[in-house]
């Protein structure tokens, strides 16, 4: 005990120091460590929530990209189908138009031929009429001095009959 006295041991001071440290210990535990740990936990929660949200956003983004790809592929396929259909339709329409044109051309050709035939016949009949008139005139003129009027008439009738037979 004497040795302790030499070191300045004082029971009252010892108790005071124990109480003092216990108070400081309580204050540190209650008002320093606790709030700091709570803050660390809060921050940790915020970080984990943010990470979770980021992960969810990433998954959503991946899904959206996947969906976008699907939609694009679908649109491409639909576009291709439409183009193919349009191409087929165009070919059919072209064929139809070609056939129509062919038919019309053939019809026009037939009509033209008929027209030509008709006109040829017309011209032929006109020519033969004119030739007949000319021939009768020529014949009348050449028979005028040689034959009587009665004979001329008979020859002319005979000649016309002959010409008609030839035609």
């Amino acid at each position: 005990m004497e040795i302790l006295k030499n070191f300045g041991f004082d029971p009252v001071m010892l108790v005071a120091q124990i109480i003092n440290f216990l108070i400081i210990f309580y204050l540190l535990k209650r008002f320093l460590y606790k709030p700091v740990f709570e803050m660390l936990k809060k921050r940790q929660d915020t970080i984990s929530n943010s990470l979770k949200q980021a992960e969810e956003i990433k998954i959503t983004l991946e899904k959206t990209i996947e969906e976008e790809k699907k939609i694009l592929l679908k649109a491409q396929n639909e576009g291709k189908n439409i183009i193919d259909e349009a191409r087929l339709q165009a070919i059919e329409i072209a064929k139809e138009i070609e056939e129509n044109a062919k038919k019309q051309t053939e019809k026009m050709i037939v009509e033209a031929r008929q027209q030509i035939e008709y006109e040829s016949k017309e011209v032929e009949s006109q020519i033969s009429e004119k030739v007949s008139i000319l021939a009768s005139e020529m014949l009348t003129k050449s028979l005028e001095g040689i034959f009587s009027a009665k004979e001329q008439k008979q020859i002319l009738n005979k000649s016309f009959k002959q010409i008609k037979k030839v035609n």
Binding site: M13, L27, L32, P35
Partner: peptide, 25 residues
Amino acid sequence: FSVTNAFLDTLLVDAFLIGLIIAVN
């Protein structure tokens, strides 16, 4: 109770730590 210079220093330490607690909070 005898207030020693070491005890005054203890109070100084207490004041510093309480100040630290207040500042942090």
